[in-house]
Design a protein around this nucleic acid. Structure first.
Lengths: 353, 353
DNA sequence: CTTCATTAGTTAATCGATTACCTAAGCACT
DNA sequence: AGTGCTTAGGTAATCGATTAACTAATGAAG
């Protein structure tokens, strides 16, 4: 190749530039180069520092995080396992966490466990094998490795769905029990007593807690669990579970006035059947959901929902992680303040403490 | 510690088990252990193989992918950069890609660029620094590093939104131009001529192509661009852009019969304003969108949309990657077959080729 | 003049896994 | 006996970055 074609040797960086190359170009050792790049200035002269920085610039050097991770046995990566990315609530939470993590110089690696224990375990292993700084699980499922992981030194943080076996785990998210209580309260305040519940699997702590709060408060008001019809079918896809379960209520002689769905996705499914049956989801009944999906105000304003704004999750998650890493970890769960989003048909009452 | 507490030394694996430990326990060299673990059997006796496998089992050894990656200069990780995880269409695509990748033994690392060039560049760098096997971009934005990346040896694949500068990039997704043409066709077949367009930034190739296809076909039918009113405001959030843009049409003396939104999210925004204005999104007008958001049949059945089922993306993406890696890469874009989802008010006509 | 401290570096080990190259033993063939 | 081939492994370099431990030079203090 004629020299005229070699250009300034600058942007011919098609193969990776290593620290060794930088050191060689700057005529220093890799140790010196490494220190300067990491901001340790007390081991080099002003001149050398400048020299190295110039070389880094010229060669377009970026440290290979993999090398650093191997040596330091710790990376800047945080693994986030979401139970279902097809659920907009979880995606929105993940998105918020991503913002907050990046703000602190961390990199998010997001995975989709599809609510399956085996896949969750696979990713847990992979995260460990990639030396993730922490693993954040949005919607954990019970799995073999989850228990093992507790004893390891990797930080494990549960979002919105507490650890399946509860004990000494870190949690950030909605207080599911209290949210259930609050929904019951609001309904009682409006004199709504004919209430039906649509739920999917109750094996997940979040759903079970929501239902418990709801029924506890209703019981206090004299409405006992037997008075509260439940609709449920087996399945993992909440949209379909909601759709099919709703049939139970449509078939009833005396249909509930209020349909409380233990997740917004269940409500979406129930809504579809309601529409197909020619009923009005606002005038003919009242729908309540949990999670407050960010799309609700845009295209599902028939739904009343209770949840935490997605953008609160990121900062809270990062704060919790930093807490765990620094001083003694907070064994108390971090409850984010949930809010109602009510449709205009529903009186907007202040939420009693 | 009394020996009675030491148990079987089995599940006390709280600190990572390394290959060296396995080798030591099995009384072989790391070379032999490594070979056996990787299935290279012609360098060890039956006995040794069994011995090593037993030790792996006992110690619960999992290779640290980071070590392998460093040595082989290549990992099993594929980086996926999504422009906005808050957009359910993109999340659903990501989810599908995750399935397909895992099926082939790859690990997805998903990131959210929030439609920002700077963040996209940051992640591109990080992916390179993590030695990602490939980078898949769902909704690329024009950015400095994107061009540089082309010359590097990392595979770059664009999903649904072609590379900003078009030339020799790999693409999998909808044929945006043809989709525009097809929507125009369908409208013409139904005699709909009074059409309005809501769009966000036209700097993105996807939106620009959709619009071009639409207008080209309409022009052929004698409806020229000047006859097609456009509504648009600045902004990145399609929900808000749609909401505010819709005002333009509501204010018009002769409102378009058909509102074509260049993305479903725009349509969701327009829908909200339509509802607030007390209009019926089916009877008073016809909404068309692009992408066919998976939630549409459940909670947005007023919307007609054109798109590709999300679950087609995964297999197609993986197939494209494998193609690129194996023989000479396919320079032709891979177009997935798009389909209409029409609401019941809209006649279901066969889609003319 | 000797001793000690400081500055400005370098050398080499290390993280975990892979693999080119070497070795030693066993067997067959001439 | 010598040569060649196969089998069953071991040795050590390597990927990229970090860092403990060392060195050489200079200056200051006694």
């Amino acid at each position: 190749m004629p020299p005229s074609q070699r250009r300034k040797q600058k942007h011919t960086t098609n193969s990776r530039v290593s620290l060794a190359m930088v050191a060689a170009h700057a005529k220093v050792s890799t140790a010196t180069a490494s220190r300067i790049i990491n901001g340790i200035t007390n081991k080099a002269s002003e001149q050398t520092i400048l020299q190295v920085k110039k070389t880094v610039e010229e060669l377009g050097y970026r440290p290979a995080s993999i090398g650093r991770a191997l040596r330091c046995q710790e990376s800047r990566m945080v693994g986030v396992l979401a139970a279902s990315l097809a659920n907009p609530t979880m995606s929105a939470i993940a998105s918020s966490i991503e913002w907050a993590l990046r703000d602190e110089g961390y990199i998010m690696s997001l995975c989709d466990t599809h609510e399956e224990a085996k896949i969750q375990d696979e990713y847990l292993r992979e995260m460990q094998s990639q030396l993730a700084r922490a693993v954040v699980i949005i919607g954990a499922v019970q799995s073999e490795l989850l228990t093992d992981y507790r004893n390891s030194d990797t930080t494990l943080l549960f979002i919105n769905r507490p650890a399946p076996d509860q004990e000494n785990s870190y949690y950030v998210g909605i207080n599911n029990y209290q949210a259930g209580v609050d929904v019951a309260n609001l309904l009682l305040q409006h004199g709504k007593k004919n209430i039906g519940i649509i739920h999917a699997s109750l094996n997940f702590t979040a759903a079970a807690e929501r239902r418990r709060g709801l029924l506890d408060r209703l019981s206090e008001a004299g409405i006992y669990p037997d008075d509260v019809p439940h609709a449920h079918i087996e399945g993992l896809n909440h949209l379909e579970v909601g759709y099919k379960s709703m049939q139970t209520f449509l078939d009833m002689l005396k249909r509930p006035d209020v349909i409380v769905c233990l997740s917004d996705m269940l409500a979406y499914g129930a809504y579809r059947l309601t529409q197909e049956a020619g009923l009005d989801p606002i005038k003919d009944m009242t729908f309540f959901g949990f999670d407050d999906n960010p799309l609700n105000p845009w295209i599902a304003n028939w739904l009343n929902s209770i949840g935490v704004p997605a953008n609160l999750y990121g900062p809270a998650t990062v704060a919790a992680l930093k807490n765990i890493w620094s001083h003694s970890p907070p064994t108390e769960p971090v409850y984010l303040p949930h809010q109602f989003r009510l449709n205009k048909e529903f009186f907007l009452l202040p939420l009693k403490k």
